[in-house]
Write a protein that binds this DNA or RNA. Structure first.
Length: 237
RNA sequence: ACGAGUAC
């Protein structure tokens, strides 16, 4: 699919259509998803050489490309470049900050992820469910369940029209965190809370529940989860 | 139009 994109771009050129920054952003993102960091970076340089002005999306895509390759320092550097460009009119938006938080999450730097969230809010950039979920996950990964729960509760009590309210994925993230510690009781409590919030569990929810049963050494409970999925679930195993 | 968060 990267190859298809490349072919398309070269056909564009032959047809006299000049690629713009969005074209390059798309390529960078496609390479990133294919874990082709070198190609992503080369494409970024190419865009600069073409005299194109990188956008917030360009840098976000670059950050994601470095992060996908596990290159934390370079990812942070790419975000720093975006911040430099703030003086030149680029805006740090919610997705850009979330990308940075994801880098910290992957790197096991939950404190930095939280600092980023607070900084975003202080800067007047509206946080959302993704930003909070990312932080919950960052703490969860480090086994810091109290912090993960504290952040999750902040999502529940956030009074901003629901833009930070936990969705299915947010519940899944916290459930997985508890499940990894073998705390299946907390996991099923969260599951009930999820239903009470009117959210429909998805396959990942059920997989997470079953994994939690496994982790806690409760094979019978796992069967009950499967039964629940088959009878009440709006999804298939 | 393009970029961000889950289970195995």
């Amino acid at each position: 699919r990267c190859e298809d994109a490349e072919r398309l771009v070269s056909e564009m050129r032959k047809a006299g259509v000049v690629p713009d920054i969005v074209t390059y952003n798309l390529l960078i993102s496609a390479y990133s998803r294919s874990e082709r960091l070198a190609d992503a970076v080369r494409t970024y340089s190419l865009a600069l050489k073409e005299g194109l002005q990188p956008t917030t999306v360009t840098f976000s895509a670059l950050v994601a490309a470095y992060a996908a390759a596990g290159r934390t320092p370079e990812a942070l550097e790419a975000f720093a470049q975006l911040e430099q460009q703030e003086a030149l009119g680029l805006k740090l938006d919610t997705k850009a900050y979330c990308g940075l938080m994801a880098v910290y999450k992957e790197a096991g730097m939950a404190e930095e992820a939280e600092r980023t969230l607070r900084r975003m809010i202080a800067a007047g950039v509206p946080p959302n469910t993704v930003a909070y979920s990312c932080l919950v996950h960052a703490f969860g990964r480090e086994g810091r369940l109290e912090d993960a729960t504290r952040v999750f509760e902040e999502m529940l009590s956030a009074d901003d029209g629901g833009s930070c309210a936990p969705d299915v994925q947010a519940f899944n993230i916290l459930m997985a965190a508890y499940g990894q510690q073998g705390l299946s009781g907390h996991v099923s409590r969260l599951f009930r809370s999820m239903l009470a919030h009117g959210l429909a569990p998805d396959v990942v929810t059920y997989n997470t529940l079953i994994q939690a049963c496994k982790q806690a050494g409760q094979p019978r409970q796992a069967e009950q989860v499967l039964a629940h999925m088959l009878t009440h679930g709006h999804c298939r195993p």
